[in-house]
């Protein structure tokens, strides 16, 4: 197994999960808001966030490649900010992974926030807790299974990301060659022993993730039982 690829894959998955926690949690909070203005906009944003679920990764990868090309708006902006380019770099596949994995994070986050009993939040406010403290003391305890599910699903899915990484990142050892790309290489090179080891690791990661998520889902989160 390609240890460099394994380390890169781990870094990519961890960074993507962190970024999606930072971006996804506030976004999901907004999407799950119970009423009020912007219902139409919310529906559209939710659809865009779900798009990667139904789009073939090669299609998404192609658009990302074009959109982040050095002459593109995003490419020029990125060059202005960092001096570098996005395609065929770690930053490029990180951006691709964040976008492609939006639904795996946003979905469980939004579901958790939508089932949150808002009366618990209001009760906390009326008990004198600030909005920020209420998020820590009420929203997180009530929603953590959904939040952890989103993070675990994201991590597991990034580990197995293939098409979009290959399209945007190519196959550069130590920079964009993830485990699934390495696996593809092994098979191309007829090194089935190495391929089998890599594949086994990927299956194990996926299984551990799913078992974790299932356990969380089965956990009886007492919600709104205090009538």
């Amino acid at each position: 197994m390609d240890v460099t690829a394994a380390w890169l894959t781990f870094r990519l998955a961890a960074a993507t999960t962190l970024l999606l926690a930072a971006v996804g949690l506030p976004l999901a909070w907004w999407l799950a808001a119970p009423h009020g203005r912007g219902a139409g906009l919310r529906g559209f944003v939710e659809a865009v966030c779900t798009l990667p679920l139904v789009l073939p990764p090669t299609v998404a990868g192609f658009f990302l490649l074009v959109a982040t090309a050095p002459q593109s708006i995003v490419g020029r902006l990125w060059a202005g900010l960092t001096g570098g380019t996005l395609p065929f770099t770690f930053s490029g596949i990180l951006l691709a992974a964040v976008l492609m994995n939006l639904p795996y994070a946003i979905g469980p986050f939004t579901a958790a926030f939508a089932t949150l009993d808002r009366r618990l939040v209001e009760a906390s406010w009326c008990l004198g807790e600030s909005r920020a403290a209420t998020i820590l003391r009420v929203v997180l305890p009530a929603c953590w299974p959904g939040i952890v599910t989103g993070l675990v699903m994201t991590f597991a899915h990034v580990v197995g990301e293939f098409g979009v990484v290959l399209m945007v990142g190519g196959n550069i050892p130590g920079i964009t060659r993830t485990l699934s790309v390495a696996l593809y290489d092994d098979v191309q090179a007829l090194d089935h022993a190495s391929a089998a080891r890599t594949a086994t690791v990927l299956v194990a990661v996926a299984l551990v993730a799913l078992v974790t998520v299932q356990r969380l889902a089965r956990r009886p989160v007492a919600r709104g039982s205090g009538r």
């Binding site: 009993d117 209001e122 406010w125 004198g128 205090g226």
Partner: peptide
């Protein structure tokens, strides 16, 4: 609400289900 210093009991009592009785009472 935080600045008004009211005690509010909603129709649904909204006890925090992950806290025990003492935890709920001491929340504030």
């Amino acid at each position: 609400p935080q600045a008004r210093d009211v005690g509010m009991l909603g129709q649904e009592l909204a006890l925090f289900p992950w806290l025990d009785v003492a935890g709920n009472v001491g929340y504030a």
